[in-house]
Amino acid sequence: MIIFAFLVIHWYVSLFFQSVFHHRYSAHGIFTMSKTWEKIFYVGCFIAQGSSYISANAYGKLHRLHHAHTDTPEDPHSPQNSSNALMMMWETRNNYIDVYTGKTPVDERFTKNLPDWPVFEKYAHTFYTRFAWIFLYVLFYVEFATAWWMFLFLPVTILMGSIQGVAVNWWAHKFGYVNCKVNNTSKNILPIDVIFWGESFHNNHHANPQNPNNSIKWFEFDSGYQMMRFLNMMRIIKLKPYYSVL
């Protein structure tokens, strides 16, 4: 029971930081926050993602490239360029590393106004730190797993952030429904999204990337947007004005 509770909590907390901090803040600049809160989010992201921690700065660049080159050979994470989901996960990982290390040069228009904390990532974004997280996860499973098959979930824990990324970026370009006509294969996975913090409304998002609310239809619910409204009300963040292009 403890293992399953941990998996659920880990899923939602990790995805919250990837959705709100990495995606909507870093990549799209949908809201602003103070440098102090930005660092708090950095640390929260590190704790939540653990061994699958990724740089908000590199993620922002990678995702902006995705929007600029969706479904083309230059798209850093498109099902159109990979034979299966596992291959896309591996290729995305390689493209991310190349962007993070500077091996892949990124045009200046994709690098503006990105969060950056190199001193923190010098320690958080290393092989040794990832190994330490994996060691802690193994100890946790050894302590609380009550059956051998529970250890089958250990790889999910270790690769949580990567699995969440491929779940949206693979399936949302393969299966689902379409609300908006766009020049790419983006789709909405779930009509009611209680799993991905509103990230499953991928077609809606591609139609209006700067819209803080990914839901359009009356039955769609973007929990990530509602959380941002709460954080805005608490003055932790400040949502920018949005003007629809639909």
Rank of each mutant, 00 (worst) to 15 (best):
G44L: 12
F120T: 02
K187N: 05
F131R: 13
Y123D: 09
A132R: 10
Y123K: 12
H69P: 08
S55A: 08
H69R: 12
V245A: 15
S200C: 05
V194C: 11
K112V: 08
S26N: 04
N183H: 12
H125T: 05
G60S: 12
L159F: 14
E38V: 01
L246E: 13
R229T: 04
T185E: 13
P209T: 05
R64C: 00
V166K: 02
N232R: 04
I158W: 09
W148G: 00
F17S: 07
N208P: 03
K122F: 11
I236K: 00
V8A: 14
L62C: 10
S55P: 07
P209Y: 07
L136H: 02
M234K: 13
Y177Q: 04
E199N: 13
T101Y: 10
Y96C: 03
P118V: 06
S244E: 10
K238L: 00
P191Q: 06
Q49K: 12
H125E: 12
H28P: 09
V119Q: 14
V166Q: 05
F131Q: 12
D75C: 09
D193L: 02
K61P: 10
V166I: 15
N211Q: 03
W197N: 08
I54R: 14
N113A: 13
T70K: 14
A56K: 02
V99L: 03
